[in-house]
Write a protein that binds this DNA or RNA. Structure first.
Lengths: 140, 140
DNA sequence: ATTCGTATATTCACCGATCAGCACCGTTTT
DNA sequence: AAAACGGTGCTGATCGGTGAATATACGAAT
């Protein structure tokens, strides 16, 4: 399960070390894609395939809107492989999209990992979360 | 069942001994997460998985607010394993969150354990509890 | 009270993850 | 050909995490 937060740094060539804690669950081949928020997502290969599957079922490409949505994911995703030092290269387009600079924040998301520029990270206060749980009556 | 209060101390590297009384119920692998109050929670693995399950059912990640809520839990949790001396390492981010210093207060919570800085521990007077029981008509 | 055993505390040494810098390609540009 | 560029690989230094050994505190039993 992909959980926790870690910060690593981009080197001059746009590479970054994948936090050791995530490597086991990510494997050494995975997919890097644009996130809906101003961040990138890393999907383990099987999670990615499942996602694409659902996407296509839910959004028949006969509809123009759907074609645009599908394109958002298909056009902006890359297969990544860890190099021998446990790093990946983040393509410059994706770096720009998430405004990645030097410090990168890796955020576990159970089945995927998000990569943020710490300055733009959208986190929440515990208080706010508390009232959501109360509202939905979820025990914690 | 996880009950009782114990105080143990953090060492220089941010590790702490899990009170012996809790080890049987926690097992040697469990999850450490942010609490809604200014404390941390320890969940036995099965409790955590059940919680995550419920969370995802109740909060579809298609909704932005839900994504933020889910992130709160996935980003701020860690899997802990007891080392051979019965200790865990508390990541620095979590230490900061609960303002943990040297003395840690472990509080049993039936199916989970809370970790507090004793200075911030929010306990209650018996009198106060009495009126809550009365209000809800809970026999004692 | 003394002894024994377990739980907790402290310290030191080691290992692994991360980081920065640079050398080494091919390819493209001047 | 030389220079510039994007990508890959290697190294040594640093820092935090991990393991081991030992010391101390505390409660139970005699």
């Amino acid at each position: 399960m992909l959980i926790g937060e870690y910060t690593n740094t981009l080197d001059a060539k746009g590479r970054v070390i994948i936090p050791a804690a995530f490597r086991y669950d990510l494997g050494d081949r995975f997919v890097l894609a644009k996130g809906i928020e101003k961040c990138l997502n890393i999907y383990p290969e099987n999670e990615w395939i499942a996602f694409v599957q659902k996407l296509q079922e839910a959004m028949p490409s006969s509809v123009k809107e759907n074609r645009k949505a599908i394109r958002f994911f298909s056009a902006n995703a890359t297969v990544c492989e860890l190099d021998k030092q446990g790093r990946i290269l983040i393509p410059s387009k994706l770096r720009e999209y998430a405004s990645l600079d030097k410090e990168l924040l890796f955020v576990g998301g159970f089945h995927k990992v998000e990569i943020w520029n710490p300055d733009f990270y959208e986190d929440s206060e515990a208080e706010e979360i508390g009232s959501i749980l109360e509202e939905k009556n979820i025990k914690y």
